[in-house]
Amino acid sequence: MVAPLVSVRDLTVQFNTDEGRITAVNKVSFDIGPGEVLGLVGESGSGKSVTAKSLMKLNAGNTVYGPDSKITLNVDDKEIDVLSLTKPEDLLYIRGGAVSMVFQEPMASFAPALTIGKQMSETLRLHLKVSKKEAKSIAIDMLARVGISDAPTRFDQYVFELSGGMRQRAMIAMALSTKPKLLIADEPTTALDVTIQAQVLDLMQDLVEEYQMAILFITHDLGVIAQVADRITVMYLGQHVETGSVRSVLNNPQHPYTKGLMKAIPKLDDLDAPLTPIPGDIPSPLERPNGCVFHTRCSEFIEGQCSINEPEMKLVTNEHDVACFAAEKLLNSNTQEATS
């Protein structure tokens, strides 16, 4: 078997704050293979972005990583233990080099007082050790490649001169210019209109094929995930609750949270279907529930089990895991029926 490009094991991320130590991510594990698109889904506060930033060790200074947490990156026949890196030049190799990131709000990720070209060249010269002239020609090529018309002019413009869709394209061009092995896309289309979103998603899919890179695609929009991802991991309150191939998870969700999400989403092919909200609110990370983190809102709550014990990830079918006692029980009874 080919070694995965990224392997995350038992990632725990905590933050020291005035109100105490907050657990943002708790024992999350996943792999991303070369050229694979993994969708990370969850509501706000579920720890999606913190997980993604850990891959580049980009979390703030008050971050504490768990002692068992391990993130391994396999690039250029080297195995890099990301969390143990401390030297700036080692981190530089990952940040913007082997791993690149596209953010939700392009206006906030570009410096407003520098031209787009200047910012792109800076990245290129830092990572590829090329001359100013070469950097400019690579940057203009890249801008044209992502569908920005009149790239040489855009190169000398500032971000505010570009429209929302253009900015997001420029952001993608900058992230891809160093030919990263892994692209982290944090809600890259959330701020865009649907027609522009369709354009950007198309572009990203073309680029995955062309550059054979892997994407960690973070979003709360299951529709977008269904269209772009190969596999999906659902997160709730810093924990992964279900993971598997997109088809298996979306067509046959096992975790009550995933099922709840599917029922809460308005669907266009059935306008009369009632919308069913998941009752209650996400608990504060300061008051993480005991046992299964979802038990306070769960419709399949099992008395005396869910609020005490923590469910582990169990295999549902090949390549589909779920962490839920109710789902486990159902599975066991199904297999017993099948054998008898």
Binding site: Q227, L250, N251
Partner: peptide, 19 residues
């Protein structure tokens, strides 16, 4: 242009040029 929840649905987005 609304992404479908069905992973097997062929995207039928009518492509609008420009913005």
């Amino acid at each position: 242009a609304i992404p479908s929840l069905d992973p097997d649905a062929e995207s039928q987005a009518i492509k609008l040029e420009g913005e």
